[in-house]
């Protein structure tokens, strides 16, 4: 029984975080009567939308054993570009398309740098994080720029009775799941993360795929940027600071390994929900705003520790098997 549970979890890596969501939600429902209201749920979903969408992109990157620290900076740059262009030209379409194109381009630059110079993605994107954020500040002259009221539609508006950010999340989620599980890009990404050496030996398009996943990461960050901008109501200098931590935490909580090779989109989205759930819980019990970060960090640490422990158990089991094989070998020889 226990072994079948283990094997299910090892195949469906998103299950633990889904269960954690349910358990924690049930707990909150008992503690607070406000929790189970529709409006609370809707606001949680909207809150998680921005990070969940980015987490979908980040999942692809981490599956190739990469990482993108610069996502928060891309988010900020896009918001700045959009707000500035809208203010200068009053053209929504121009601002929209320029922002998304630019986000994709910045992601692509990350990918090109990582593949071209074979520098660790951590260092590369740490550098571009600084560059992108600096460029954005340069662009706007460090001004706060308000966006017109009708932009709010993207953040709070409804379409077919559903909040727009949720619709966007669902669409990107479906696309992401399809891309990861049914296209060559998805399979190659997993392969590269599983063994870069084998990927090269098998003549897989390693460079193309790696650049593509960073480009995807950039693009979804662009979409998130617009949603966030719409919700906040204008460009502020604090936008996007530290968001990459939340995004990476969501992906890791969702069961994707930092070492690459395997991971699921569902898990990452559940991971993003979970982080919002924690915030919500802290909010409902009137916790001090200062402990939010401490709790988030601790949760991430705990999740990684649990994963590490189970991996270690499996490792020692493998050593045990190896020992038995060796003895068996002696016996049969």
């Amino acid at each position: 029984m226990k072994s079948t549970l283990n094997s299910i979890i090892s195949k469906q890596k998103w299950l633990p975080i889904a269960l954690a969501n349910m358990v924690f939600a049930a707990l909150l429902a008992i503690v607070s009567p406000v929790f189970l209201t529709l409006s609370n749920f809707q606001s949680m979903l909207i809150q998680s939308g921005v990070t969940a969408i980015m987490a979908i992109g980040m999942t692809f990157i981490i599956i190739t054993a990469g990482i993108d620290i610069s996502m928060g900076a891309i988010l900020f740059f896009c918001s700045a570009l959009f707000a500035q262009l809208l203010q200068d030209t009053q053209s929504y379409w121009l601002a929209f398309s320029a922002a998304i194109a630019c986000a994709t381009l910045l992601g692509t630059i990350n990918g090109v740098l990582v593949t071209r110079f074979k520098i660790s993605p951590l260092i590369t994107t740490l550098a571009t994080y600084s560059i992108y954020r600096g460029m954005a500040i340069h662009l706007t002259g460090a001004q706060n720029i308000p966006v017109p009221r009708e932009m709010g539609f993207l953040g709070n508006g409804k379409l077919f009775g559903l909040p727009v950010p949720i619709i966007l999340l669902i669409v990107i989620f479906i696309l992401g799941v399809y891309l990861l599980n049914h296209t060559r890009l998805g399979l190659y990404a997993k392969a590269i993360g599983s063994s870069a050496r084998s990927a090269n030996e098998s003549n897989l398009p390693v460079t193309k795929v790696t650049v593509a996943v960073y480009a995807i990461g950039g693009m979804v960050t662009g979409i998130s940027a617009l949603i966030l901008l719409a919700r906040v109501g204008g460009l502020q200098s604090g936008i996007g600071i530290g968001i990459e931590f939340t995004v990476i935490a969501a992906v890791i909580l969702g069961g994707t390994k930092l070492t690459g090779g395997s991971g699921t989109i569902v898990g990452s989205v559940f991971g993003a929900f979970f982080l919002v759930l924690i915030d919500n819980g802290l909010n409902l019990v009137n916790a001090s705003p200062y402990i939010y970060d401490i709790v988030r960090g601790s949760v991430l640490l705990a999740a990684v520790a649990v994963d590490r422990l189970s991996a270690k158990r499996q490792e020692s089991r493998l050593i045990q098997i190896k020992k038995q094989r060796l003895e068996h070998n002696h016996a049969t020889n």
Binding site: L187, A191, G193, S194, S195, S198, A199, G260, G261
Partner: peptide
Amino acid sequence: ELSLFGALTVAENMCIG
């Protein structure tokens, strides 16, 4: 040293080329 992908399935490994 085998050129396989540990995280992928048997079928995926065989057909990836």
